[in-house]
Write a protein that binds this DNA or RNA. Structure first.
Lengths: 122, 122
DNA sequence: ATAGATGCAAAGGGTTTGCACTTGA
DNA sequence: TCAAGTGCAAACCCTTTGCATCTAT
């Protein structure tokens, strides 16, 4: 049974307000504005709980801490701007990934990451 | 000016002998068999030097430590077996990634990761 | 009342760095 | 010779955990 604490309310709000994946530190900053003395352990535990219950999904970019976003976005991939570092959601996917598989391999999932310049930075 | 120490010789050998991406710990184990008292700092510094000089490229899988492989393999992607955890090189690529881009975005690079079962584990 | 949640601080895992010592060019 | 490279340990960053306290139910 989950409890509805003011800490988790603030953490949930950070994610619903954001339109992009958030990392634990960003969540601590955002939610910390509304909850005095919010601890990082609380943020980590809340995120873990939200992922476990399926409300959040991890967005793991190579070489940096995991970020998280709402799971109701459906299948999509991400774009990371090399100038400003922001991560954007992409719509759509590509076909033909199976043709990359060696013989005997079974494909279960995939991840596509695009890098470049975003609208603003281009 | 780079020096040809026995430590770096052993570390280079670990990469040339391996036909897969290696992480720092694996390198420490492999090269450590030939160099007594090899320190992890040495491995990290050597890898960093090899990447800087372009001999190695990082292979960063979400959620785990970076691995490294020879840069002369050309453009390719990777497959990670969910059972045994091994990482395999894939040949080929896919087209049509540009169509995922929002308007105004500029595509510079991309990464594709496939997950599933390898030949042995399937 | 009481089990879940919190905050703090300590502990972990992986990576980097400071520093004195070693060694290749 | 003498700067690059090494080994050790301490420092760092991010994340997890132990534990006493707090609080929603």
């Amino acid at each position: 049974m989950q409890r509805d604490t003011k800490q988790r309310q603030a953490i949930r709000k950070a994610f619903t307000d954001a339109d992009r994946p958030l990392g634990p530190t960003e969540v601590l900053d955002l939610a910390g504005e509304h909850v005095d003395g919010l601890g990082q352990a609380t943020v980590y535990r809340a995120i873990k709980a939200f992922v476990d219950e399926g409300w959040l999904v991890p967005v793991e970019l190579p070489g940096e801490p995991a970020r998280y976003e709402l799971s109701d976005k459906g299948h999509h991939h991400h774009f990371r701007c090399r100038t400003c570092g922001s991560v954007f959601d992409l719509v759509g996917c590509v076909k033909g990934l199976e043709k990359l598989l060696p013989k005997g391999f079974k494909l279960e999932d995939h991840e596509i990451l695009l890098y470049g310049l975003c609208d603003n930075c281009a």
